[in-house]
Nucleic acid binder design. Structure first.
Lengths: 229, 229
DNA sequence: ACAATTAGTGTATACTGTACATTAAGTAAA
DNA sequence: TTTACTTAATGTACAGTATACACTAATTGT
C-alpha cells in the first residue's frame, strides 16, 4: 500500500501499545514499518482511523490483524497532536494500550508491517515519531491501573498460582514485592478461587492453582479496588 | 461564521469543560450555540483544531476567548470518536477540563457563542452531541485528581481559610467531609503556610488565613500525593 | 539420601483512617 | 451590655491496614 501523501491535510490515527508477559518480563509488540516515513524501523503498530469506523474500533482492528485476538481489554490513554509530530502531514493520534497473553500467540505481520517482534518494555530507549512518549504514558497508565483494578490478568493462563500473579505485578511495576504481604492482601480481596489442584512436573514444592471468581472480577472492574502495594 | 459542511469529511475538535466554584457549588461554563447543529442550545464550548495549531493549544485558545484567562491548568481527559457523534459529518473531539476562579471573572460571548452562562454541574441532565458524556468523564477525572494532586486550588483566592479548602473539596466530591479529620490530614501535608492574619468582617469567629507553599505545591504537582478522604 | 528450588505461613509494630463534642471568637440584635 | 448566633478550632480512642521479617514444606534431579 503506497503512502498517500494527499490524504495528509488532516487525519487521525491510533497507535497500539500491546503489552505481553514472558519470563516475568513485561514486553511490548513492535512492528517493522513497511511504509515511509521511518520505513524499516521498529515502531508501535497503528493505522489511520477509517471514515466509517468508530474510533474505539480502530485499535481493535489493529490488534486483531496482528494477533488474531478479539475481546481484549483496551484502554484509551492519551491523544497526541503536535503539529509536526508526523513528518508528512497533520496527523493526530490516539494512544491505546492492551494486554495479551503471549502463550500460544503467534503475532503475524500484517499489511502495516513487514515483521513483528516483542521487545522488553524497560529496555527501549527511543522510537520513531512520538512513539516513545506514547509508550511511556501507556506504561504509567498500566502501572496505575493495576493498583486500582483487576487488570493485567489477561496475561495469566486460565489456572495460575499466586506466584504467577505476583510475577505479573512485579513485571508491571518493575520492582520486587514482599511475598507474604502480597499474598495476604491479594487473597483478602476474595477475587481468587482455590481450584484444589496443584502444579505438576515442577522441581520444587508444587503450588496451589487458582482461578478468578468471575462475579467479583467484573464487580471490581466496574467499581475498582485499592491495591496499593 | 457559516458552517462549512464541506470541511466535514474528517475533522477534529476540542471541547472544554470549564469548572468554577460559586457558593460552595461546582459550576460549569456553557455557551449558547450560535451555529447549527443544535443552534441556540446550551453546550460545551469547543472548536475545530486548526491545521497549524498544536492540539493542546486549541483548548487554551477557547478558554482565553471565553474568559480571557491564560496559564490555567488544563487536563486532557478523553477522545470521543463515534462515527455519528456529530450529525453533520465525521468529527473526533478531544475533551479537556480546566478550573478557573469565578471571582472577578466576566465570561464573554465569543465567535462560537451568542451567550455564556454558569450551570450547576450536578443538576445538568443532558447536553447536545455527546457533551453530557464528556462532562461526566471530566467530573470523574476531576474527582480523582483532587485526591492525588494539588488541583482545584485555582478556584481559591490568594489568601484563604482551611474551611475554604474544605468547601472546595466538598463541592468537587459532592459530599460532606469530617472537619477535624480534613484539617488534620490537609495540614499534615505541609502544603499550607499560616500567614498570621485573620478574616475580618465576618459575623463569627474569624478564621486563620493561609497561602500555598509554592515549592511544595510544585513538588506535589509533579509527584502527586495521596489524599484519600 | 541429599541438594536444589520454589511454596507457603504468622506476628509484632507503626501508622493511618475514622468517629465524635466542646470551647473560642467574633458580629448582630435586643 | 448582654444575649443569641455563627463559624473556627481542637484531641482522643479504636479499628484497620501497611510493613518488616525467617523458617518449614513439598517436590524433582542427581
Amino acid at each position: 500500500m503506497p503512502f498517500r501523501n494527499s490524504f495528509f491535510k488532516s487525519a487521525f490515527s491510533v497507535d497500539n501499545v500491546i503489552f505481553g508477559l514472558e519470563n516475568s518480563t513485561l514486553k511490548v509488540l513492535l512492528i517493522k514499518r513497511s511504509e515511509v516515513p521511518f520505513i524499516n524501523e521498529w515502531a508501535l503498530p497503528g493505522d489511520l482511523v477509517r471514515v466509517d469506523e468508530d474510533l474505539r474500533d480502530a485499535p481493535k482492528r489493529i490488534l486483531k490483524e496482528l494477533t488474531g485476538l478479539q475481546d481484549v481489554y483496551l484502554d484509551q490513554v492519551h491523544t497526541f497532536g503536535k503539529v509536526d509530530r508526523h513528518p508528512l502531514g497533520r496527523v493526530i493520534t490516539v494512544g491505546y494500550y492492551s494486554l495479551v497473553n503471549m502463550d500460544n500467540l503467534k503475532p503475524r505481520a500484517a499489511s502495516i508491517a513487514s515483521k513483528v517482534k516483542w521487545f522488553d518494555v524497560f529496555e527501549l530507549e527511543s522510537l520513531p515519531f512520538d512513539h516513545f512518549e506514547i509508550l511511556q504514558k501507556c506504561i504509567r497508565r498500566l502501572q496505575n491501573s493495576v493498583r486500582e483494578m483487576p487488570i493485567g490478568f489477561e496475561l495469566l493462563p486460565e489456572r495460575f498460582t499466586l506466584s504467577d500473579v505476583q510475577d505479573l505485578y512485579e513485571a508491571v511495576l518493575n520492582k520486587n514485592l514482599d511475598k507474604r504481604n502480597f499474598r495476604k492482601k491479594f487473597l483478602s480481596m476474595g477475587l481468587l478461587i482455590d481450584v484444589k489442584k496443584y502444579q505438576t512436573g515442577v522441581a520444587h514444592r508444587p503450588a496451589k492453582l487458582y482461578k478468578f471468581e468471575t462475579s467479583k472480577y467484573e464487580e471490581f472492574k466496574a467499581k475498582g479496588f485499592n491495591f496499593e502495594i
